[in-house]
C-alpha cells in the first residue's frame, strides 16, 4: 500500500533500514541505538498503539539516521581533529538544516545579486548610449549636459561618429538586457531543479 508516495513499513523493516543507514557507526553504538527504538516499539504496543501509528509518529529512518550520523561525525572531529574530519563534520551539520540557510540562501542571494548587477550594467550602458547619441546629435545645444557627460575630444570633434557610437551603445545595452532576461529565466529553472534535489537530500 502506498501512502504519500512511501511504502508503509513494519517494525522490522523500519529497524533494518535504520540499521543500514547507520552503517558508518561502530557496531556497538548502532546496537544501542536500535535497542532504544525497539524499546520504543514495545512500550508503544503496551500502550495500545499499532506498529503503523508508531512508525508514522517516529518519522522517517532517514531523518533519524541523519542526526545520529551528524553527531557521531562531529564527535569524531572533536576527538580526532583533522582537516578532513572537520570538513566532514561541517558538512554533516550543514546537512541537518543549516544546509538550507547556507547552501540555498547563500548562492541564491549571490545569483540574484549578480543578476541585479548585470541588469544595472545593461541599463547603464543603454542610458549612456542614449546620452552619447544626443550629445552627438544636438552637440552644443546640449551645453547644459556638458558637465555631466565626458566625451573624448576626438569624438566631440566628429559629431557623426558620436551619434553612431551612441546608437551602437544603446543597441548593445538593449541586447545585453535581453541576454540578461534569458539568463534570469535559465537561472530560475536551474534554481527550481536545485531546490528539488535539495529537498530529496534533506528529506523533511
Amino acid at each position: 500500500m502506498l501512502s504519500g508516495g512511501k511504502m508503509i513499513m513494519n517494525k522490522s523493516e523500519f529497524l533494518k533500514e535504520l540499521s543500514s543507514l547507520l552503517s558508518s557507526l561502530p557496531s556497538d553504538e548502532r546496537q544501542e541505538i536500535l535497542f532504544d527504538y525497539e524499546e520504543h516499539f514495545s512500550v508503544g504496543k503496551e500502550n495500545g498503539k499499532t506498529e503503523d501509528e508508531i512508525i508514522k509518529s517516529l518519522g522517517s529512518p532517514r531523518s533519524i539516521a541523519k542526526q545520529y550520523n551528524a553527531s557521531y561525525i562531529v564527535t569524531q572531529a572533536e576527538i580526532n581533529p583533522s582537516p578532513s574530519n572537520m570538513t566532514k563534520a561541517i558538512f554533516a551539520t550543514l546537512a541537518l538544516g543549516f544546509f538550507n540557510l547556507v547552501f540555498v540562501l547563500g548562492p541564491f542571494l549571490g545569483v540574484v545579486g549578480g543578476l541585479i548587477g548585470l541588469f544595472g550594467a545593461s541599463i547603464g550602458m543603454t542610458l549612456a548610449g542614449i546620452a552619447v547619441f544626443f550629445q552627438g546629435a544636438l552637440g552644443p545645444a546640449m551645453g547644459s549636459l556638458g558637465p555631466y557627460i565626458n566625451i573624448p575630444f576626438a569624438l566631440e570633434a566628429n559629431p557623426g561618429a558620436t551619434i553612431f557610437l551612441g546608437l551602437g551603445l544603446t543597441a548593445l545595452g538593449l541586447l545585453f538586457s535581453i541576454g540578461n532576461c534569458y539568463l534570469a529565466k535559465f537561472l530560475y529553472i536551474g534554481t527550481v531543479k536545485y531546490l528539488k534535489f535539495n529537498l530529496k537530500l534533506i528529506g523533511r
Partner: peptide
C-alpha cells in the same frame, strides 16, 4: 523517565517527529 515517556510527554504538547528525540537523548 524512560524514552517513550519523554517522547510522549513532549509530543503531547508539541508536534514533532518523535524519532528526533532519541538522537537528542543520546547526544
Amino acid at each position: 523517565c524512560y524514552g517513550y515517556e519523554l517522547v510522549n510527554d513532549i509530543s503531547k504538547n508539541i508536534a514533532i517527529s518523535e524519532g528526533t528525540i532519541y538522537p537528542l537523548l543520546r547526544r
